[in-house]
Design a protein around this nucleic acid. Structure first.
Lengths: 275, 275
DNA sequence: CGCCGTCTTGAAGACTTTCAAACGAAGTGG
DNA sequence: CCACTTCGTTTGAAAGTCTTCAAGACGGCG
C-alpha cells in the first residue's frame, strides 16, 4: 500500500532506505498552525528542519542556524496543484522546498504549458527572477508541500548569517546550472526511450540523494507532465515505459515505479541513433 | 566581403547597427603583448573594456572599476579551436568573454561531443564549477577570442569591489539559468524546423543585444555543432535551413545568414505538432 | 588543378506523432 | 451498492517526420 501523502520524515537515518511516499505512523507529526492563506506561523524553524544540511544554512552551527532563520520571510503550506509563484510576480523571495515537490512551467502565448523542471525537497527555486526582477515561470505543487520563503532583501544585508546564506545560494545556483545542463544533454538524445530512461535514472538519483530507495518510488507527476518535460507526447511516454517493462527493466503500477535492472536501464540512455 | 576575424569594436555607437564579423580598417587596434601562452600582459583593463557595463564591474564608477580590475587574475587570448578549460579542471576562475565566442561541450564516455551552449562577448562562463569544485564541461573558442579570468578567491575577499562583483556574478548566474531554461523549452519543440527557427532567433537577439545587426550575421559554429546543440543530425539542420530559405524567410551563404522575414521566422517557432 | 573538409540533396528505413478506441481507477448520483 | 461519468493511461494503425546511407556540390588550400 502506497500513500500519496507527503511527509516530513528523517529518511537519512541508517538501515534500509525508506520508500518515498510510504508513511509510517510513528513519523507523523502534529500539524503546524495553518491560517487560511497556508502560512505556517508556529514552526521549529531552520534548527529543527531536516533539510538544514542541504539548504541555505548549510555549514553553520546550531546557534548560527537561528540567525539564518531570520532570513526566512515566511513558511507556507501548499496543497497539490496550488501555485507558489507566477510569471511576472515580483522577485522578493526564493523558495526552499522543505517537504514535497513542485514543477516549474512556462506558459506560451497560446496558453499551452511547458514543464521546464521538477523540484524536490532540499532544492531552492526562483533563481530565474534575480536577473529578470520578476519570475519567468510558474511554480506549482505536485503534492502537498511546505516551502520556506528566503527574503532576498534580508539575504543581502551583510550580516555574517546573510553572507553564509549568500555563499550557499551561490552554490545552489551553480548546482541548478549544472542540473539544467544535464537536462539539455538529456533532451538532445534523439530516441524517446533514451530520454525516458535518463529521466527515470535522474529521478532515482534524486530519491537516493534524499535517503529514499533508488529502485522504487512514486512519480509525483502525470504522464502528460513527463511528456511535456521530455518533449514527447504522452503516448510515447507510455509506450517507452511499456517497452522498458516488457524487457523486464522496470515495473510500473500507475505512478509507482520499480527499477529492476539499473545497469540495463543505464545502457538504454546511450542513444543508438545519431553519431 | 565578410571577414572571419574577431574584432574588439564599439558596436553600440549610434547610427546603423554594425554587421557582426565585418571589420572596418579604422577600427583595428594595436595588438596587445602576447607571450607564447596567450597571456595578455599589457592591457587597458576593465576601465578600457567595451564590455564593462555588461560584465562583473557593471554599475561602478570609473575609479571603482580600477578596483574591480584587481579581481581579474589574468587575461588570455585564444585561437580558434583552443580549449579554455576542460572537464575536471579545478575551479579557480570564471571567465568573462571580452572578444569572440566559445562553445561548451560535454564529452560522453564513448568520446562523442555534445554541445551544451554557445557563448558570446559579455557573457561569463564556468559557473558549473562553483558547486562541483571542478568544471563539468569543456570550453572551446569558436573564433579567435579574448577572455578575462575572474579569480573566485579574490571575488570572495569581501572588499567593496568584491561585493559588487559578487552581486554581478549572482545576476549573471540567474541570467544563465534563465538562458538554459529557454534552451530546455526550445529543445522540447518536437519539430526540427521549430528548433532551428528558435535557434536563429536567439542568435539574432544575441547579436542585437550587442549592437550588431539582428537580421544579418555570421554563424561562428559549424552545422555539426548546431546539430549537436539542437539534438538533430547535420542533414536535418541543413534541410531546415534550406526549407526556410526556399520559403523566403532567410538567406544563407555558408555561415553567413540573413533573416528576410523576422515575423514569419517567429511563426515557425510555434511547433505545429503536439498539443 | 586537385585534394579535403563542409555542406547540400535524395531515397529508404526507422521512429514519433496523430487519431481512434479501449481500459482501469476514482468519484457521483440514483 | 451499482450504474455512470470522468480522467489518466494504454494500445493499435496510419500518417508524418527524422535518421541513415549515399552521392554530389561547393569553397579553401596546398
Amino acid at each position: 500500500m502506497i500513500s500519496t501523502h507527503a511527509e516530513e520524515g528523517a529518511p537519512l537515518a541508517g538501515g534500509g532506505a525508506r520508500l518515498h511516499g510510504v508513511v509510517s505512523l510513528r513519523e507523523r507529526r502534529a500539524e503546524y498552525v495553518l491560517p487560511r492563506n497556508g502560512l505556517i506561523t508556529s514552526d521549529p524553524g531552520c534548527p529543527g528542519c531536516n533539510q538544514r544540511d542541504r539548504c541555505v544554512g548549510a555549514g553553520s552551527s546550531p546557534e548560527d542556524l537561528a540567525q539564518v532563520d531570520r532570513i526566512i520571510g515566511h513558511r507556507r503550506r501548499l496543497e497539490r496543484g496550488e501555485v507558489l509563484f507566477r510569471t511576472r510576480d515580483p522577485c522578493e523571495f526564493l523558495y526552499a522546498i522543505r517537504v514535497g515537490s513542485l514543477k516549474s512551467v512556462q506558459i506560451s502565448e497560446d496558453g499551452r504549458e511547458q514543464v521546464i523542471g521538477f523540484h524536490m525537497a532540499g532544492e531552492i527555486i526562483g533563481f530565474d527572477a534575480i536577473a529578470a526582477k520578476a519570475h519567468t515561470c510558474n511554480a506549482v505543487a505536485l503534492e502537498d508541500s511546505k516551502v520556506c520563503a528566503i527574503s532576498l532583501k534580508r539575504a543581502g544585508e551583510g550580516s555574517a548569517a546573510a553572507q553564509l546564506v549568500q555563499r550557499n545560494l551561490s552554490r545552489a545556483m551553480s548546482q541548478e546550472i549544472t542540473r539544467e545542463q544535464r537536462m539539455i544533454v538529456l533532451l538532445s538524445y534523439s530516441l524517446a526511450l533514451s530520454r525516458v530512461a535518463s529521466f527515470l535514472l535522474s529521478m532515482s538519483n534524486n530519491f537516493e540523494a534524499r535517503g529514499y530507495s533508488r529502485s522504487e518510488f512514486l512519480l509525483r507527476m502525470s504522464r502528460a507532465e513527463i511528456g511535456s518535460f521530455l518533449g514527447m507526447t504522452i503516448e510515447t511516454v507510455s509506450r517507452s515505459l511499456s517497452e522498458l517493462a516488457r524487457e523486464g527493466i522496470i515495473e510500473t503500477d500507475q505512478r509507482h515505479l520499480r527499477i529492476l535492472d539499473m545497469e540495463r536501464l543505464r545502457k538504454k540512455t546511450r542513444r543508438i541513433a545519431m553519431i
